[in-house]
Design a protein around this nucleic acid. Structure first.
Lengths: 216, 216
DNA sequence: AAAAACTGTGTCCACCGGACGCTGTTATTT
DNA sequence: AAATAACAGCGTCCGGTGGACACAGTTTTT
């Protein structure tokens, strides 16, 4: 799949008026994915929901991969504008906003894996984070920081999806507790609170702050 | 898909000798996935590689989902035994070992998303990490720590897969540099070194150490 | 008015996961 | 040893998938 598709503007053309738009198709597909998961998004299904035949969609999109890419771009939306506050607060807000996007569209977690082009919105999110990371860090370190933060958000969101209601972990764990004493011990004094996101975020930022302070 | 499949032992049966085993099937499937990605793993293809018809595989596995689950279990393998050293060193080693597993089987990153059962090996990895996390942290914090570490490993491995050779980022970035000044600035003094994994790991562990020390 | 470009549709294909029934093999029971 | 029940692998069938391609109708340009 070519990255150009996400970046090129689509000029006005000559023939009959198009009945659809890429955006409308992506939104219909997103509605399906939100409700029934990414696997339920087939060309046939999307077209049917729009009242067209599946082949008409190929007038707007080269294929399913591009459809998913557009869906992802729209699910992320434009990067939030976070002005003011400390760099740490800004990165917390940025991470929380990104998390919101993934929570609202769990299928996006499937869409971000594998080799794929980066769209303008996704690039914008990266830009927004980089703009607030102290330049006492080197360029490489700043890029790595973004990767770590974005990765943390995704990973925790994904794990929460895996460990959905009635945790698969405790389900599998039942009946084998004896073989996993450390898990048993940890589960014993676990408050139900679902904290991995903020817990990890604070640890990462503590570590970053330590590095930044040591750099001055 | 039921979690039981991954945990139950398979008793000897009565009829004709089975020509295959679940393990042999999973290994054949893994060979395909390693070479051509998880999408190339179809029942037909796996069976053909083994010299059987696809329907014969269903005598060993309820369906494709279970096949992938077994593949994942075997790709992870038993948890590494890490004795001695500081808890920090142990967690570094643990993370590096987990990373190795994902690097060797990139398709595993696709296999761990979505709601799914946890197998014995995966549980063992969790146990191994929990066994080395200081108990000055609460049970919830220890669980969160494992989630954050495992998530970091996965996320960075996934991003490296996305940003494969000839980075998709720089490819999309070319021609739009002006709109993303912070990215441009960061890329300008980037050493090619691929460091996000260790960079993030050190930050997380710094943050954890800070928390542990403050707890005493 | 003519031509070129475009849209949406219908048909076709290979492939996918999987259900089901059949035949032949084998371990257990009689 | 013979009967039987359980099981292995195969062939056929089904609905669904992404996508190629040619066609007819519409709209803009020449």
């Amino acid at each position: 799949m070519s990255a150009d598709f996400l970046w090129a503007e689509r000029p006005k053309r000559r023939g009959p008026k198009p009945a659809l738009t890429v955006e409308a198709i992506a939104d219909a597909a997103t509605a399906i994915a939100d409700a029934e998961g990414l696997a339920a998004v087939s060309m046939q299904r999307v077209a049917a929901d729009l009242g067209f035949t599946k082949m008409s969609l190929y007038r707007y999109l080269p294929g399913r991969a591009e459809l998913v890419a557009v869906m992802l771009e729209r699910a992320l939306g434009p990067a939030p504008e976070i002005s003011g506050g400390s760099w740490r607060d800004a990165l917390v807000t940025w991470s929380e906003c990104l998390r919101e996007a993934y929570i609202g569209h769990p299928w996006a977690l499937e869409a971000v894996i594998g080799n794929r082009p980066i769209g303008p919105h996704e690039m914008g999110w990266m830009e927004a984070a980089l703009a607030r990371i102290p330049t006492t860090l080197t360029g490489s370190e700043r890029m790595d920081t973004v990767a770590v933060l974005a990765g943390h958000v995704r990973a925790i969101a994904a794990q929460e999806a895996t460990m959905g209601s009635e945790s698969e972990l405790t389900k599998s764990f039942a009946g084998h507790a004896a073989e996993f004493p450390a898990i048993m011990a940890a589960l014993r004094d676990t408050t139900g609170a679902d904290n991995a996101f903020h817990f990890g975020l604070e640890r990462i930022l503590d570590g970053l702050e330590h590095l930044v302070n040591g750099r001055v």
